[in-house]
Simulated scan of single mutants.
Amino acid sequence: MTATLPSELRDVFAGCTSAELVTIDDRGRPVARSVTPAYRPGGPCIDVAERETVVDPHVALLFADDGPMVLVQGTARAADGLHVQPERVYAWRSDDPDAEPRLFDTHLEEVRSGHNEEPEVGHRGPEGGDAVWDARLEALDSALLACVGPDGFPFAARLQVAPDAGDGVLRLPRLPVGMPVEAGPACLHARRGPRVHGDLVRQSGGWAFVPHAVLDA
């Protein structure tokens, strides 16, 4: 699929020295961590150097450095690292992050709007429970947010977060256009900061993230 993508997106894959890998654990929760990608122009896969164990072959790779934010959803195969075969690619314009993303879908072999039309599968609801607050959360102003979309693929984007220690939540003032947001398990991963597992919930003021575990990245 990658050979048919615009050159600026292939350049993103080839030029990034780090990316965020999102997998789904055995409880159906998204898990995000930083990895080292490798891409051969025109190749069928994007490789991950780290030896990763995947329970569910549905994964996502987020490239969000200085250029356009690009999300690759694909299927993973472990063999001397991880090989991710793209199924869909979302690309947000770097000069207009509020615009609808372009969607490149290997099944349709054409460019469509940022609406995924794959059949929906079951989605886990929020795990619930009390929030676990950590002082490190108060320093966050942006992070990757990962969730599991209605089609069973992880979805991730980098966005602004607003810590609210009083209510024990991280508020999400602006979600990227095209992100399939539903209440349920989610993961926040901050650059040079913690990885946080919790629930994505809808509150009166909009969407918020309730932390349940704050881990070293």
Rank of each mutant, 00 (worst) to 15 (best):
P97D: 01
E120K: 12
G168R: 05
P154A: 09
V111C: 02
E110Q: 13
A162Y: 04
D141G: 08
E117Q: 14
L140R: 11
T106F: 00
E138S: 15
V148N: 04
A157C: 07
D151N: 15
R124V: 02
D130W: 01
L108D: 09
V89I: 15
R88I: 03
R158Q: 09
E87C: 09
G114N: 06
L140S: 08
E120W: 09
A162R: 14
P97W: 02
V148G: 01
R158S: 06
E138N: 11
V132D: 03
A162D: 14
A99Q: 08
R93M: 04
Q160M: 03
G122W: 05
A157L: 01
V111H: 03
H107T: 13
D95T: 06
A146S: 15
P97R: 09
L108A: 09
G114P: 08
A143C: 08
W133L: 08
E120A: 14
V161K: 03
T106E: 12
A156P: 12
A162V: 05
P97G: 00
A139E: 15
D95P: 00
T106S: 14
H115R: 15
T106L: 07
G152T: 11
R102N: 01
E110T: 14
G114H: 06
D134Q: 11
A157T: 07
R124A: 14
D95I: 01
V148Q: 03
G149R: 15
E127N: 06
E87M: 09
R112F: 00
V161M: 01
R88L: 13
A131V: 07
D105E: 15
V132S: 04
A131K: 02
P86D: 07
S113N: 10
A91S: 11
P173T: 02
E120Q: 13
D167E: 12
R93T: 01
Q160N: 01
L137W: 08
A131T: 14
D167V: 00
F155Y: 13
P150M: 10
N116D: 15
A139T: 15
R112L: 09
G129W: 10
R88F: 04
V161N: 02
L172C: 00
D141Q: 10
S142F: 06
N116K: 11
P86G: 08
C147G: 12
V89L: 13
N116E: 14
E138F: 00
V121M: 06
V111S: 05
A157Q: 02
L140Q: 12
A143W: 02
D95A: 03
R102S: 06
A143G: 02
D96E: 11
A156N: 12
P126R: 04
